[in-house]
């Protein structure tokens, strides 16, 4: 399974992606969780105490491409090799690799950016599941940071702004001929909101995650919701999203 979480900033992508990755890893799958946001995020939701580190600088080398300065993974280092070597192990056995985070003035992310992109094009295949958390507001997630995914989960809150982003992503997905794209209604307070999310995005609803005050508390404490409230509403809803994907059941 290769899934990518997309949607408006603040819709809950990281919280759901982090929980999803750990729940999946907890079933015995070998899971690689990828964070391609230049700002810190997924590590918190996974409960991993490494907010910054990406690929070490020396893994990326500069080369000259017809007069243009470009970067690639160091000779001899494959994407699979980079994952084996530099992904960190987190709770439930989940493996985690992130784009190195922005820090300070003149922070140059060119190396990180290219190195990480090369890893995305050469991810480990057999025996691995990939769970990706994409930056909010990505213009073309289907062709860029999410190009490895076979399923996109568009995370949408039942607000007009979030729905508008969801619609826009649905339109871009159609243009990009993206593989399976489904929507997840997040922070749902009333059941009719789920239907509205489906109608207004034109996407199939994979499932719904209720508004969860315990998630708000976990976010404030900087803890993974799965550690804070393992049997709570968010964890339960994510487990059922995963079941729907794994059994290949038709989403509601």
């Amino acid at each position: 399974m290769r899934v990518a979480f997309v949607g408006k900033g603040g819709a809950g992508k990281s919280s759901l992606a982090g929980t999803f990755a750990r729940v999946l890893a907890g079933t015995g799958e070998r899971v690689l969780a990828l964070d391609s946001d230049p700002m810190p995020g997924l590590a918190f939701s996974l409960g991993i105490d490494r907010v910054d580190e990406g690929l070490p600088d020396e893994t990326v080398e500069e080369y000259n491409d017809d007069g243009h300065r470009r970067f690639r993974l160091r000779q001899g280092l494959t994407g699979v090799g980079a994952v084996e070597r530099y992904a960190v192990q987190g709770p439930d056995g989940v493996h985690f690799l992130q784009l190195g985070k922005a820090h300070g003035q003149r922070w140059d992310n060119t190396r990180q950016h290219f190195g990480f992109q090369h890893v995305l094009d050469d991810l480990p295949g057999d025996g691995w599941s990939i769970v990706g958390d994409l930056p909010g507001g990505t213009r073309q997630p289907f062709m860029t940071w999410g190009r490895y995914a076979d399923t996109f989960l568009v995370i949408v809150e039942p607000t007009p702004a979030s729905l508008l982003t969801g619609r826009r992503l649905a339109r871009l997905a159609a243009t990009a001929q993206a593989p399976r794209v489904v929507v997840v209604a997040n922070k749902v307070r009333e059941s009719e909101e789920v239907e509205r999310v489906g109608e207004r995005t034109g996407l199939r609803v994979l499932g719904a995650v209720p508004f969860d005050p315990e998630l708000e508390t976990a976010d404030r404490l900087g803890r993974a919701v799965l550690d804070h409230d393992p049997q709570g509403q968010t964890a339960t809803a994510v487990r059922s999203l995963m079941d729907v994907l794994l059994t290949g059941m038709e989403p509601s």
Binding site: K8, G9, G136, G137, T138, R139, P160, A161, L164, T165, R167, R168, R171, T175
Partner: peptide, 29 residues
């Protein structure tokens, strides 16, 4: 923002905001 929705918070409503975005996407394509 790459997902522009300031129009909604300013009180322009969803339709006008979305039409501005469609115009923007037309530039992208």
């Amino acid at each position: 923002d790459t997902n522009p929705n300031l129009g909604i918070s300013l009180g322009l409503g969803e339709e006008v905001t979305e039409s501005l975005i469609a115009l923007r996407d037309a530039v992208d394509t």
